[in-house]
Design a protein around this nucleic acid. Sequence first.
RNA 1: GUCCCAGUAGCUCAGCUGGAUAGAGCAACAGCCUUCUAAGCUGUAGGCCGCAGGUUCGAAUCCUGCCUGGGACGCCA
Length: 558
Amino acid sequence: MNILDETKKQIRESLCDAVLAAELATYEQIPAIILETPRDKNHGDYASNLAMQLARVAKKNPREIAEEITKHFNKEKASVRTLEVAGPGFINLFLDQRFLRQVVPTVLREGAAYGRSNVGGGTSVLVEFVSANPTGVLHLGHARGAAVGDSLCNILDMAGYNVKREYYINDAGNQIDNLAKSLEVRYLQALGKDAALPEDGYQGQDIIDIANDIAKAHGEEFVSLSEKERVDHFQTLGLDHLLKKLQADLEDFRVSFDTWFSESSLYTSGKVEETLETLRSNGEVYEKEGATWFQSTRYGDDKDRVLVKNDGSYTYLLPDIAYHKDKMDRGFDKLVDLFGADHHGYIARMHAAIQALGYPKAKLDFQVGQNVNLFKSGERMKMSKRTGNAVTMRELAEEVGLDATRFFFAMRSVDTHLDFDMDLAVEESNENPVYYVQYAHARVSSLFLQAEEKGVAYDKSAELDLALIDSEKAYELLKKIGEFPTVVAGAAEQYAQHRIPNYLHELSSTFHSYYNAERIVDPGHPGLTQVRLALANATQTVLRNGLNLIGVQAPQKM
RNA sequence: GUCCCAGUAGCUCAGCUGGAUAGAGCAACAGCCUUCUAAGCUGUAGGCCGCAGGUUCGAAUCCUGCCUGGGACGCCA
């Protein structure tokens, strides 16, 4: 429990007590008390609309009610300095801000753990994200998914959820066969033999590179194998290579997964069959026109879906259902799927599927990342996987910088379309908000150096005279720092990772303002210097903790 | 035609599940460095919150209908 939340809770209780004392309503009649943070400082630190909500019950006008509540309110207990009745009946509460000073020792004590809360209550969550087809390159959309998903997981973790990250590998089906065949052809070509790429084969240079490597290492070793053996072999080799590359790309993007789940393992373990049988015995499927259909319309889908085609093979949906069944059976309290807008039609059918299997719909949440458009030299870059023309995740990070890329993706709500202007990000990089936040962090480090040079080095174990903190700017900063755990908790509950960058920007702004208003390192006043450095240190800790959540570095120097 | 997302300052976006005079960054304008990092600070200007109804004490926020832009609607994945 953090200081701000505790104070708010205390205020709510005091308001409740005041209503009862004034005999305005019974306990049962009192609604959930909402404390707003007014935009305008003249309206206090918090404002409550309680009087307006009680107008009906008490049969009095809201202003009158507000006056009554104010009269019976216990100010000392709730750290409230004054109360005012304003507007149509708002009760504005002005805090005795001195309680905020406790934020400093709290942050210094908790350090990297400051911001943790237990709103998650240990709920286990499996977040699946990226899950790009291994035969393609990670492009912009995946970069967004990777940045958002990873940030979200970090946030969930800090808010007391038990998080696991998973990548679902589509290593079964046509695309992989195709990969194997393409690789085989390139291998034969590398050996100077005559072979033609299948019509829908993979054109990419990476396939050629892999084939050349294999040819170099193994020579003609595989030529004598039967075609089937050869293709199988190339499938394993190719996949292995692609996965390693994928993993490396993601690691370099500061994203790592707890599990890499193989689609083909669902076939070998018999889980695909098993899922189909379960659906069948639950009476959720029927046969029509030689195919097997899942009656997803029962659960609100637009139309029924084919699971087994009339040639006997499975559609992508069946293994995907089996995959979600497997995830459910692994005992997670919650599953989160994060993917691109092009798969949004998938939501209804997957929700239908898990219900048909007997799991509650609410256990599976979806986050849909809207499209990313890349602009370069004022022109929109067309995305194309096949021609290899798209800007890849790696290229983007290299050109723009990893910190800026991650911050940029994290700062936008996932469900908005995103225009990524590379020229702006590269050429005018100092205008990127990430630098503003990092600068605040580096500035604090610089303060410590200054203090040392001037003989008033920051002493972490020094006794702090917190009473020396007593300015409006300092209180604003303290309040902002105090909000951090609540911001993290809210971001977790709403899957709103973008609130973290926004918060960090606000915190930085508050700090820069404080920095300009008060001289922190002042050799003439060692005690004051210590307190102010402690406040700066607390700020820096929060900046660092927040940047960690979104995978951005916190530099000591810029 | 159906479904999803978006529409808020010139541009890019916030707006904490319904609150008071709608915010930030960039761009524009005016100030602030012999003193801790000017990648900073202070101030000014800039708005029919797509449009029209509805719900109520109160709507950018919730409901309905339209308009515009993006995406999805396969026995592809």
